[in-house]
Design a protein around this nucleic acid. Sequence first.
DNA 1: TACTAACACGAAAACGTTTATGTTGAGGAT
DNA 2: ATCCTCAACATAAACGTTTTCGTGTTAGTA
Lengths: 346, 346
Amino acid sequence: MKKKVTLKQIARELDVSIATVSKALRDSKEISEDTRDKVKAFAKLYHYRPNNIALSLKNRKTKTIGIIIPEIVHHFFSKVIKGIEEVANKKGYNVIIGLSNESFDKEVINMEMLANGSIDGFILSISKETMLQQDYHHFNETISQGMPIVMFDRIVNEIHCDKVIVDDLKGAKKAVIKLIENQCKHIAIITTKDYVNVGRLRTQGYIEALNDYDIESQSDLILKVDDKLMSEDYIDILEQEIMDLFHKNPEIDGVFAVNELYAITTMKVARKLGKQIPEQLQVIGFTDGVLSRHAMPSLTTVSQHGKKIGIVAAELLIEKLENEVEDEQVSTVVIETELIERESTK
Amino acid sequence: MKKKVTLKQIARELDVSIATVSKALRDSKEISEDTRDKVKAFAKLYHYRPNNIALSLKNRKTKTIGIIIPEIVHHFFSKVIKGIEEVANKKGYNVIIGLSNESFDKEVINMEMLANGSIDGFILSISKETMLQQDYHHFNETISQGMPIVMFDRIVNEIHCDKVIVDDLKGAKKAVIKLIENQCKHIAIITTKDYVNVGRLRTQGYIEALNDYDIESQSDLILKVDDKLMSEDYIDILEQEIMDLFHKNPEIDGVFAVNELYAITTMKVARKLGKQIPEQLQVIGFTDGVLSRHAMPSLTTVSQHGKKIGIVAAELLIEKLENEVEDEQVSTVVIETELIERESTK
DNA sequence: TACTAACACGAAAACGTTTATGTTGAGGAT
DNA sequence: ATCCTCAACATAAACGTTTTCGTGTTAGTA
């Protein structure tokens, strides 16, 4: 087991100083061609690679991006990571991941763990608990220490940082308009409680779309599911609630669901009730994941372009990192959604 | 913007030496209670946190684990990551991720990038291209430099390192036996080309199960899909191949697919052909992802326990890291699969 | 001959820690 | 008065780099 070779060892072997070795390897013209070649040959032979940690310490930058997300087993988030990773890698950055598991405490701990020199900046999406508690001190502290943050998807407006979001409202509106134009007369929405930002915005888009077409929104067509309890029989409860919705409102002929799972479950319930999709019931979901693509019938959905979000977020962050401009300027980029039509609509 | 405070600054402010500050914070009894309190108060006030990079350099360990996987937008891999992260976090480790995108070159580059001091050890699953090229020099080099590696799922036996695998053969066998005992008389398998380890093993399990029940395996019931081309119309091609399989062998009444996607696609084709599931055709997949759970009908599947794999892998690695025992002992842990019965079988 | 310039290299500082090894002064023992 | 001990702190080395600032040698110039 040959340990990693360092400048010092090379220097000792070749009987020159550490400085000379370093300069030779970096092609400094201060060093004679002779010595340069000798050093390089030796370095190559022993697979010398500069120690990253030492470099980080010296340069006061780690070339590493920290990502904090609530959950990784999740199509949208992993798409975002993929986007981030792609950009980061291209620019010579590494990506280090912390999971909050939707917990405030874990979010804080993870951020503190990474903020102590391990990374140059954060890309993150806020946990539900944090949204609920509205305690944002950890973000402000990080920023005030000069470490840039880029928030995506689940953001909080009060924080002064770059943001990348989806046009949730507009996306939802597009979906509902599609249903309206497809002759749906009684459109329901399956959404989350209002404290979830995206749920609220999408619900708003739903209402606006109806209003635009002079349809009055009925509160009994709006099902707000509590997604706090992520219990085992969560799906069963969800299914039951949707079942109730249909029983109470048998006239429903269109459903807009604010995520894939709600949409799929809606289709499952519809099938149990013997409703044909899309003939008797049309369904549109949000988030274009595997479920939508491979469901039967495949699901018409509002795609969020997760990877694009990751790409933009990474670009924003790296831009901030590389140009040490003291501009406290922040920007919010909105990634347009796209309606992907499949078999669950006419 | 107040920059991060260091020992040096505290020392200067309090007019003591850096060493005194360091010792005071670490509760060294060498320092008078008086000074200790003063230092601690000051440190607390200014949110002093030791710089991770400096510590890493000093201790020659980073408390960070490197993960290299072929793809992150993938249920199985993200489950594994979740498991790793859980253990790592509990033991004070961070997790840094590199994606190979199934490419040999990216795998090598990523490993080199991380091996230069950024991490203490690797947990990885090999890219398809690497399996194909059978060039494993980067693994051997890493190991010979004293950096431990734990491989999971897609492993290569020649490498001397800890491994965590799934009992692919046995899992497949269990599935096929289930089909046999459910009275299927003509069982097909949809698998990958043989160079994919797991595909080969699962195929072998299929054959062994049949043999155990004195059924001769027919080559025309074994569909080996080429999954190299990940093109846009990949799914269409897959669908066509499965369609052909059914056309040529209309007697098929059971299908074992080596992954979720193949299984779902099989069900889609079956539906197009008007076959009732599970009455006329029973289907079992491998890998318990969202697709299996939420498909209609939901899919009976062989669960790989991805998270468990991650947990075990992380435990093995950290064990190696913390106990600097020079035991070149390596172990291979097999995680048992589990057959999860759902609606696609009787 | 004396001065200068170019060349090729070394010494040292710096990044932020921890820790082994001094150093100093006070107090107690002889 | 001398020696020793101990408390309480400082110094310095080390981790592995990069880079600034010397410094000695050689060759060229006036």
